[in-house]
Design a protein around this nucleic acid. Structure first.
Lengths: 214, 214
DNA sequence: TGACAATGATTAACACTGTCAAGTAAAAGA
DNA sequence: TCTTTTACTTGACAGTGTTAATCATTGTCA
Protein backbone atom coordinates (compact mmCIF):
# COMPACT_ATOMS: atom_id res chain seq x y z
CA UNK A 1 0.00 0.00 0.00
CA UNK A 2 2.32 2.72 1.21
CA UNK A 3 5.08 3.55 -1.18
CA UNK A 4 7.45 4.79 1.50
CA UNK A 5 11.05 3.61 1.34
CA UNK A 6 10.79 2.17 4.85
CA UNK A 7 8.73 -0.92 5.56
CA UNK A 8 5.96 -0.88 8.11
CA UNK A 9 7.97 -3.19 10.32
CA UNK A 10 10.93 -0.87 10.28
CA UNK A 11 8.77 2.07 11.26
CA UNK A 12 7.12 0.18 14.12
CA UNK A 13 10.49 -0.91 15.39
CA UNK A 14 11.77 2.63 15.22
CA UNK A 15 8.75 3.98 17.08
CA UNK A 16 9.18 1.36 19.74
CA UNK A 17 12.80 2.23 20.22
CA UNK A 18 11.90 5.90 20.41
CA UNK A 19 9.27 5.24 23.03
CA UNK A 20 11.71 3.27 25.14
CA UNK A 21 14.34 5.97 24.85
CA UNK A 22 11.74 8.55 25.89
CA UNK A 23 10.69 6.49 28.91
CA UNK A 24 14.30 6.09 29.86
CA UNK A 25 14.79 9.84 29.72
CA UNK A 26 11.61 10.33 31.72
CA UNK A 27 12.79 8.09 34.50
CA UNK A 28 16.20 9.72 34.49
CA UNK A 29 14.45 13.06 34.82
CA UNK A 30 12.25 11.74 37.64
CA UNK A 31 15.29 10.45 39.51
CA UNK A 32 17.07 13.76 39.12
CA UNK A 33 14.01 15.70 40.27
CA UNK A 34 13.54 13.47 43.28
CA UNK A 35 17.24 13.78 44.08
CA UNK A 36 17.14 17.57 43.82
CA UNK A 37 14.08 17.67 45.99
CA UNK A 38 15.53 15.41 48.64
CA UNK A 39 18.83 17.24 48.55
CA UNK A 40 17.22 20.62 49.11
CA UNK A 41 15.15 19.25 51.99
CA UNK A 42 17.81 17.18 53.73
CA UNK A 43 21.05 18.91 52.82
CA UNK A 44 24.39 17.55 51.70
CA UNK A 45 25.23 15.36 54.65
CA UNK A 46 21.95 13.50 54.82
CA UNK A 47 21.48 13.08 51.11
CA UNK A 48 21.18 9.36 50.41
CA UNK A 49 20.95 7.31 47.26
CA UNK A 50 18.62 4.83 48.87
CA UNK A 51 16.18 7.53 49.87
CA UNK A 52 16.17 8.87 46.33
CA UNK A 53 15.34 5.38 45.09
CA UNK A 54 12.54 5.06 47.59
CA UNK A 55 11.11 8.45 46.67
CA UNK A 56 10.99 7.53 43.01
CA UNK A 57 9.69 4.03 43.68
CA UNK A 58 12.56 1.88 42.46
CA UNK A 59 15.18 -0.29 44.08
CA UNK A 60 18.47 1.40 45.01
CA UNK A 61 20.46 -0.35 42.33
CA UNK A 62 18.23 0.95 39.58
CA UNK A 63 19.79 4.37 40.07
CA UNK A 64 23.02 2.90 38.77
CA UNK A 65 21.36 2.24 35.44
CA UNK A 66 20.82 5.97 35.02
CA UNK A 67 23.75 7.55 36.86
CA UNK A 68 27.17 6.05 37.31
CA UNK A 69 27.15 6.54 41.07
CA UNK A 70 26.04 8.78 43.92
CA UNK A 71 28.62 11.37 43.05
CA UNK A 72 27.44 11.55 39.46
CA UNK A 73 23.88 12.05 40.65
CA UNK A 74 25.00 14.79 43.00
CA UNK A 75 26.94 16.37 40.18
CA UNK A 76 23.77 16.56 38.13
CA UNK A 77 21.91 18.10 41.05
CA UNK A 78 24.63 20.74 41.09
CA UNK A 79 24.38 21.19 37.32
CA UNK A 80 20.71 22.08 37.64
CA UNK A 81 21.87 24.78 40.02
CA UNK A 82 24.57 26.03 37.67
CA UNK A 83 22.01 26.31 34.93
CA UNK A 84 19.58 28.55 36.81
CA UNK A 85 22.48 30.46 38.36
CA UNK A 86 23.82 31.15 34.88
CA UNK A 87 20.41 32.28 33.69
CA UNK A 88 20.09 34.70 36.61
CA UNK A 89 23.46 36.24 35.90
CA UNK A 90 22.81 36.46 32.18
CA UNK A 91 19.60 38.38 32.89
CA UNK A 92 21.42 40.77 35.18
CA UNK A 93 24.10 41.30 32.56
CA UNK A 94 21.58 42.04 29.84
CA UNK A 95 19.53 44.39 31.99
CA UNK A 96 22.19 47.11 32.09
CA UNK A 97 24.47 48.86 29.66
CA UNK A 98 26.49 50.99 32.03
CA UNK A 99 29.58 49.24 33.35
CA UNK A 100 29.16 49.96 37.04
CA UNK A 101 25.42 49.43 37.05
CA UNK A 102 25.98 46.13 35.31
CA UNK A 103 28.62 45.02 37.78
CA UNK A 104 26.41 45.98 40.69
CA UNK A 105 23.48 44.10 39.18
CA UNK A 106 25.66 41.03 38.68
CA UNK A 107 26.76 41.19 42.28
CA UNK A 108 23.21 41.55 43.48
CA UNK A 109 21.98 38.67 41.33
CA UNK A 110 24.82 36.56 42.64
CA UNK A 111 23.99 37.30 46.25
CA UNK A 112 20.30 36.81 45.64
CA UNK A 113 20.92 33.34 44.26
CA UNK A 114 22.95 32.41 47.29
CA UNK A 115 20.29 33.66 49.66
CA UNK A 116 17.37 32.00 47.92
CA UNK A 117 19.16 28.71 47.19
CA UNK A 118 21.46 28.25 50.17
CA UNK A 119 21.63 24.46 50.01
CA UNK A 120 22.40 24.46 46.33
CA UNK A 121 24.91 27.26 46.72
CA UNK A 122 26.80 25.36 49.37
CA UNK A 123 26.98 22.35 47.13
CA UNK A 124 28.02 24.29 44.04
CA UNK A 125 30.63 26.61 45.45
CA UNK A 126 31.59 25.52 48.94
CA UNK A 127 31.30 21.84 49.68
CA UNK A 128 31.80 20.48 46.17
CA UNK A 129 33.36 23.31 44.22
CA UNK A 130 35.36 20.74 42.23
CA UNK A 131 32.21 20.26 40.17
CA UNK A 132 33.12 23.52 38.47
CA UNK A 133 36.22 21.94 36.99
CA UNK A 134 34.44 18.93 35.55
CA UNK A 135 33.50 19.10 31.89
CA UNK A 136 29.82 19.70 31.29
CA UNK A 137 28.07 16.38 30.56
CA UNK A 138 25.56 15.92 27.71
CA UNK A 139 22.53 18.16 28.10
CA UNK A 140 24.43 20.85 29.95
CA UNK A 141 26.65 22.18 27.20
CA UNK A 142 24.69 25.42 27.03
CA UNK A 143 25.05 26.33 30.70
CA UNK A 144 26.21 29.92 30.88
CA UNK A 145 29.84 30.41 31.77
CA UNK A 146 29.15 32.80 34.63
CA UNK A 147 32.77 33.54 35.25
CA UNK A 148 33.26 34.41 31.62
CA UNK A 149 30.26 36.70 31.83
CA UNK A 150 31.80 38.71 34.64
CA UNK A 151 35.10 38.84 32.83
CA UNK A 152 33.36 40.20 29.75
CA UNK A 153 31.64 42.92 31.77
CA UNK A 154 34.98 43.99 33.17
CA UNK A 155 36.84 43.86 29.89
CA UNK A 156 34.18 45.94 28.18
CA UNK A 157 34.32 48.41 31.05
CA UNK A 158 38.04 48.68 30.53
CA UNK A 159 37.67 49.19 26.79
CA UNK A 160 35.09 51.90 27.36
CA UNK A 161 37.42 53.63 29.76
CA UNK A 162 35.15 53.11 32.75
CA UNK A 163 37.69 51.03 34.60
CA UNK A 164 41.41 51.11 35.18
CA UNK A 165 43.00 47.97 36.56
CA UNK A 166 46.36 46.35 35.75
CA UNK A 167 44.99 42.91 34.98
CA UNK A 168 41.52 41.97 33.79
CA UNK A 169 41.61 38.36 34.95
CA UNK A 170 42.94 39.33 38.35
CA UNK A 171 40.20 41.90 38.80
CA UNK A 172 37.56 39.42 37.69
CA UNK A 173 38.81 36.96 40.25
CA UNK A 174 38.99 39.65 42.92
CA UNK A 175 35.45 40.83 42.32
CA UNK A 176 34.07 37.32 42.10
CA UNK A 177 35.92 36.38 45.28
CA UNK A 178 34.56 39.42 47.10
CA UNK A 179 30.97 38.57 46.29
CA UNK A 180 31.38 34.85 46.77
CA UNK A 181 33.11 35.56 50.06
CA UNK A 182 30.14 37.56 51.28
CA UNK A 183 27.68 34.81 50.43
CA UNK A 184 29.93 32.16 51.91
CA UNK A 185 30.34 34.15 55.11
CA UNK A 186 26.60 34.58 55.29
CA UNK A 187 25.90 30.91 54.74
CA UNK A 188 28.64 29.48 56.92
CA UNK A 189 29.27 31.91 59.74
CA UNK A 190 27.35 34.04 62.20
CA UNK A 191 29.17 37.19 61.15
CA UNK A 192 26.92 38.15 58.30
CA UNK A 193 23.17 37.73 58.81
CA UNK A 194 20.81 38.08 55.86
CA UNK A 195 19.75 41.54 56.93
CA UNK A 196 23.32 42.85 56.69
CA UNK A 197 24.07 41.21 53.37
CA UNK A 198 22.59 43.82 51.05
CA UNK A 199 24.17 46.91 52.65
CA UNK A 200 27.56 45.22 53.04
CA UNK A 201 27.46 44.17 49.41
CA UNK A 202 26.68 47.72 48.36
CA UNK A 203 29.49 49.23 50.37
CA UNK A 204 31.97 46.62 49.16
CA UNK A 205 30.96 47.11 45.54
CA UNK A 206 31.32 50.86 46.05
CA UNK A 207 34.80 50.47 47.55
CA UNK A 208 35.86 48.28 44.65
CA UNK A 209 34.30 50.70 42.20
CA UNK A 210 36.25 53.58 43.67
CA UNK A 211 39.38 51.48 43.73
CA UNK A 212 39.13 50.41 40.12
CA UNK A 213 37.72 53.43 38.34
CA UNK A 214 39.66 55.18 35.67
CA UNK B 1 55.23 12.97 111.70
CA UNK B 2 54.16 15.53 109.18
CA UNK B 3 52.28 18.38 110.73
CA UNK B 4 50.43 19.18 107.53
CA UNK B 5 46.71 19.76 107.82
CA UNK B 6 46.05 16.93 105.36
CA UNK B 7 46.48 13.32 106.33
CA UNK B 8 48.74 11.00 104.38
CA UNK B 9 45.73 9.12 103.15
CA UNK B 10 44.13 12.27 101.84
CA UNK B 11 47.29 13.19 99.96
CA UNK B 12 47.67 9.76 98.44
CA UNK B 13 44.09 9.82 97.33
CA UNK B 14 44.54 13.23 95.80
CA UNK B 15 47.67 12.17 93.94
CA UNK B 16 45.89 9.15 92.62
CA UNK B 17 42.97 11.21 91.41
CA UNK B 18 45.41 13.62 89.80
CA UNK B 19 47.19 10.81 87.99
CA UNK B 20 43.96 9.45 86.65
CA UNK B 21 42.86 12.87 85.51
CA UNK B 22 46.20 13.33 83.79
CA UNK B 23 45.94 9.97 82.04
CA UNK B 24 42.47 10.84 80.95
CA UNK B 25 43.68 14.09 79.48
CA UNK B 26 46.57 12.27 77.81
CA UNK B 27 44.25 9.85 76.06
CA UNK B 28 41.94 12.66 75.06
CA UNK B 29 44.92 14.42 73.59
CA UNK B 30 46.06 11.26 71.83
CA UNK B 31 42.62 10.79 70.30
CA UNK B 32 42.51 14.39 69.14
CA UNK B 33 46.00 14.15 67.63
CA UNK B 34 45.16 10.91 65.85
CA UNK B 35 41.92 12.45 64.63
CA UNK B 36 43.70 15.55 63.34
CA UNK B 37 46.30 13.41 61.64
CA UNK B 38 43.75 11.15 60.01
CA UNK B 39 41.61 14.08 58.98
CA UNK B 40 44.50 15.86 57.29
CA UNK B 41 45.48 12.68 55.47
CA UNK B 42 42.04 11.48 54.42
CA UNK B 43 39.98 14.65 54.21
CA UNK B 44 36.49 15.46 55.41
CA UNK B 45 34.51 12.86 53.54
CA UNK B 46 36.63 9.87 54.47
CA UNK B 47 37.19 10.86 58.08
CA UNK B 48 35.89 8.02 60.21
CA UNK B 49 35.49 7.56 63.94
CA UNK B 50 36.34 3.89 63.73
CA UNK B 51 39.61 4.61 61.99
CA UNK B 52 40.52 7.13 64.66
CA UNK B 53 39.85 4.47 67.27
CA UNK B 54 42.00 1.98 65.44
CA UNK B 55 44.85 4.47 65.04
CA UNK B 56 44.88 5.18 68.75
CA UNK B 57 44.46 1.52 69.70
CA UNK B 58 41.06 1.54 71.35
CA UNK B 59 37.64 0.27 70.50
CA UNK B 60 35.34 2.66 68.62
CA UNK B 61 33.04 3.19 71.55
CA UNK B 62 35.86 4.40 73.76
CA UNK B 63 35.91 7.63 71.78
CA UNK B 64 32.48 8.37 73.20
CA UNK B 65 33.97 8.47 76.69
CA UNK B 66 36.13 11.42 75.62
CA UNK B 67 34.04 13.20 73.00
CA UNK B 68 30.29 13.31 72.84
CA UNK B 69 30.17 12.16 69.21
CA UNK B 70 31.89 12.34 65.86
CA UNK B 71 30.79 15.89 65.34
CA UNK B 72 32.26 16.98 68.64
CA UNK B 73 35.56 15.35 67.72
CA UNK B 74 35.54 17.07 64.36
CA UNK B 75 34.75 20.35 66.09
CA UNK B 76 37.86 19.96 68.20
CA UNK B 77 39.93 19.18 65.13
CA UNK B 78 38.66 22.47 63.73
CA UNK B 79 39.43 24.25 66.98
CA UNK B 80 43.06 23.23 66.71
CA UNK B 81 43.00 24.91 63.34
CA UNK B 82 41.36 28.06 64.67
CA UNK B 83 44.05 28.29 67.31
CA UNK B 84 47.00 28.25 64.93
CA UNK B 85 45.11 30.43 62.46
CA UNK B 86 44.57 33.00 65.18
CA UNK B 87 48.22 32.87 66.15
CA UNK B 88 49.28 33.47 62.55
CA UNK B 89 47.02 36.49 62.22
CA UNK B 90 48.07 37.91 65.57
CA UNK B 91 51.71 37.72 64.47
CA UNK B 92 50.92 39.51 61.24
CA UNK B 93 49.01 42.18 63.13
CA UNK B 94 51.86 42.78 65.55
CA UNK B 95 54.51 42.88 62.84
CA UNK B 96 53.32 46.19 61.36
CA UNK B 97 52.33 49.58 62.64
CA UNK B 98 51.21 51.20 59.41
CA UNK B 99 47.55 50.61 58.61
CA UNK B 100 47.87 49.50 55.01
CA UNK B 101 50.98 47.43 55.60
CA UNK B 102 49.19 45.75 58.46
CA UNK B 103 46.09 44.99 56.42
CA UNK B 104 48.21 43.60 53.59
CA UNK B 105 50.14 41.44 56.05
CA UNK B 106 46.89 40.15 57.53
CA UNK B 107 45.63 39.27 54.07
CA UNK B 108 48.86 37.51 53.20
CA UNK B 109 48.88 35.56 56.46
CA UNK B 110 45.28 34.58 55.84
CA UNK B 111 46.02 33.31 52.35
CA UNK B 112 49.16 31.56 53.48
CA UNK B 113 47.21 29.63 56.09
CA UNK B 114 44.69 28.53 53.50
CA UNK B 115 47.38 27.39 51.11
CA UNK B 116 49.44 25.52 53.68
CA UNK B 117 46.47 23.96 55.50
CA UNK B 118 43.92 23.37 52.76
CA UNK B 119 42.12 20.48 54.41
CA UNK B 120 41.80 22.33 57.68
CA UNK B 121 40.75 25.51 55.92
CA UNK B 122 37.95 23.73 54.10
CA UNK B 123 36.68 22.31 57.35
CA UNK B 124 36.92 25.57 59.25
CA UNK B 125 35.46 28.00 56.74
CA UNK B 126 33.80 26.12 53.94
CA UNK B 127 32.37 22.73 54.77
CA UNK B 128 31.66 23.30 58.46
CA UNK B 129 31.69 27.05 58.93
CA UNK B 130 28.97 26.68 61.58
CA UNK B 131 31.75 25.76 63.97
CA UNK B 132 32.55 29.46 64.10
CA UNK B 133 29.23 30.16 65.75
CA UNK B 134 29.64 27.56 68.48
CA UNK B 135 30.91 28.80 71.82
CA UNK B 136 34.53 27.90 72.50
CA UNK B 137 34.69 24.79 74.70
CA UNK B 138 37.01 24.50 77.73
CA UNK B 139 40.65 24.80 76.77
CA UNK B 140 39.96 27.02 73.80
CA UNK B 141 38.86 30.19 75.52
CA UNK B 142 42.04 31.99 74.56
CA UNK B 143 41.76 31.37 70.84
CA UNK B 144 42.29 34.67 69.08
CA UNK B 145 39.17 36.31 67.71
CA UNK B 146 40.57 36.73 64.21
CA UNK B 147 37.60 38.66 62.98
CA UNK B 148 37.91 41.06 65.89
CA UNK B 149 41.56 41.49 65.04
CA UNK B 150 40.80 42.63 61.52
CA UNK B 151 38.09 44.92 62.78
CA UNK B 152 40.55 46.51 65.19
CA UNK B 153 43.07 47.09 62.42
CA UNK B 154 40.43 48.84 60.37
CA UNK B 155 39.04 50.90 63.22
CA UNK B 156 42.50 52.09 64.18
CA UNK B 157 43.18 52.94 60.57
CA UNK B 158 40.03 55.03 60.54
CA UNK B 159 40.94 56.79 63.76
CA UNK B 160 44.38 57.60 62.41
CA UNK B 161 42.84 59.02 59.29
CA UNK B 162 44.33 56.39 57.00
CA UNK B 163 40.96 55.08 55.93
CA UNK B 164 37.61 56.53 54.98
CA UNK B 165 34.68 54.16 54.88
CA UNK B 166 31.04 54.67 55.91
CA UNK B 167 30.81 51.63 58.16
CA UNK B 168 33.64 49.84 59.98
CA UNK B 169 31.85 46.51 60.38
CA UNK B 170 30.76 46.48 56.78
CA UNK B 171 34.28 47.14 55.59
CA UNK B 172 35.66 44.47 57.89
CA UNK B 173 33.20 42.01 56.43
CA UNK B 174 33.96 43.12 52.91
CA UNK B 175 37.70 42.78 53.32
CA UNK B 176 37.41 39.45 55.09
CA UNK B 177 35.04 38.21 52.41
CA UNK B 178 37.40 39.29 49.64
CA UNK B 179 40.33 37.37 51.08
CA UNK B 180 38.27 34.39 52.12
CA UNK B 181 36.71 34.36 48.68
CA UNK B 182 40.12 34.16 47.05
CA UNK B 183 41.20 31.24 49.20
CA UNK B 184 37.88 29.49 48.71
CA UNK B 185 38.06 29.95 44.95
CA UNK B 186 41.56 28.58 44.98
CA UNK B 187 40.65 25.56 47.05
CA UNK B 188 37.35 24.72 45.41
CA UNK B 189 37.54 25.79 41.79
CA UNK B 190 39.95 25.64 38.87
CA UNK B 191 39.83 29.40 38.35
CA UNK B 192 42.55 30.35 40.78
CA UNK B 193 45.68 28.16 40.85
CA UNK B 194 48.24 28.61 43.61
CA UNK B 195 50.59 30.48 41.32
CA UNK B 196 48.01 33.20 40.64
CA UNK B 197 46.95 33.58 44.26
CA UNK B 198 49.65 35.98 45.43
CA UNK B 199 49.42 38.48 42.56
CA UNK B 200 45.62 38.46 42.57
CA UNK B 201 45.60 39.05 46.31
CA UNK B 202 47.97 41.98 45.89
CA UNK B 203 45.91 43.61 43.16
CA UNK B 204 42.68 43.08 45.10
CA UNK B 205 44.16 44.53 48.26
CA UNK B 206 45.42 47.45 46.25
CA UNK B 207 42.00 48.06 44.69
CA UNK B 208 40.38 47.97 48.12
CA UNK B 209 43.08 50.21 49.52
CA UNK B 210 42.46 52.78 46.80
CA UNK B 211 38.74 52.47 47.29
CA UNK B 212 38.86 52.96 51.04
CA UNK B 213 41.63 55.48 51.57
CA UNK B 214 40.94 58.83 53.07
C1' DT C 1 42.07 -7.68 104.37
C1' DG C 2 37.61 -8.40 102.16
C1' DA C 3 33.09 -6.61 100.40
C1' DC C 4 31.30 -2.95 97.70
C1' DA C 5 31.28 0.70 94.43
C1' DA C 6 33.02 3.36 90.72
C1' DT C 7 35.78 3.70 86.62
C1' DG C 8 37.43 2.57 82.05
C1' DA C 9 37.03 -0.03 78.26
C1' DT C 10 34.84 -3.75 75.48
C1' DT C 11 31.46 -6.72 72.95
C1' DA C 12 27.33 -7.17 70.45
C1' DA C 13 23.92 -5.26 68.11
C1' DC C 14 21.02 -1.85 65.33
C1' DA C 15 20.00 0.80 61.56
C1' DC C 16 21.96 2.86 58.26
C1' DT C 17 25.15 3.76 53.97
C1' DG C 18 27.22 3.00 48.77
C1' DT C 19 28.09 -0.54 45.66
C1' DC C 20 28.60 -5.08 43.14
C1' DA C 21 27.37 -9.74 41.14
C1' DA C 22 23.93 -12.64 40.06
C1' DG C 23 19.34 -13.58 38.92
C1' DT C 24 14.48 -12.76 37.05
C1' DA C 25 10.75 -11.53 34.24
C1' DA C 26 9.12 -9.30 30.39
C1' DA C 27 9.65 -7.37 25.93
C1' DA C 28 11.84 -7.37 21.26
C1' DG C 29 13.79 -9.58 17.29
C1' DA C 30 14.44 -13.53 14.20
C1' DT D 1 8.32 -20.15 18.63
C1' DC D 2 12.96 -19.68 20.15
C1' DT D 3 16.53 -16.61 21.41
C1' DT D 4 18.41 -12.40 22.81
C1' DT D 5 18.19 -8.08 24.79
C1' DT D 6 16.35 -4.87 28.16
C1' DA D 7 14.86 -3.22 32.68
C1' DC D 8 14.89 -4.13 37.04
C1' DT D 9 15.35 -6.63 41.65
C1' DT D 10 17.46 -9.65 45.26
C1' DG D 11 21.01 -10.60 48.17
C1' DA D 12 25.21 -9.70 49.81
C1' DC D 13 29.53 -7.18 51.33
C1' DA D 14 32.05 -3.94 53.72
C1' DG D 15 31.66 -0.04 55.77
C1' DT D 16 29.51 3.81 58.89
C1' DG D 17 27.81 6.28 63.66
C1' DT D 18 25.74 5.10 67.78
C1' DT D 19 23.50 2.67 71.89
C1' DA D 20 22.88 -0.76 75.62
C1' DA D 21 24.73 -4.27 78.20
C1' DT D 22 28.82 -6.33 80.12
C1' DC D 23 33.35 -7.21 81.90
C1' DA D 24 37.59 -6.34 84.41
C1' DT D 25 40.18 -3.46 87.00
C1' DT D 26 40.89 -0.13 90.32
C1' DG D 27 39.63 2.74 94.35
C1' DT D 28 37.03 3.19 98.75
C1' DC D 29 35.70 2.02 103.12
C1' DA D 30 34.23 -1.15 106.97
Amino acid sequence: MSESSTTRQQRVRQASADRRARQKLDLRRAILDAATDLFEREGYEKFSLRQVAEAVGYSPTTIYLYFTDKDDLLHHVALEGFRSFGEDLARAFAAHEDTHARLLALGQAYVRFGVTHPVHYRLMFMVRGEFLSRPNPPGYESVVDSFGLLERAIREGLERGDLDVPDVSAHTLGLWAAVHGLVALHLATPYLPASALEPVLEQTMEVMRRGSRA
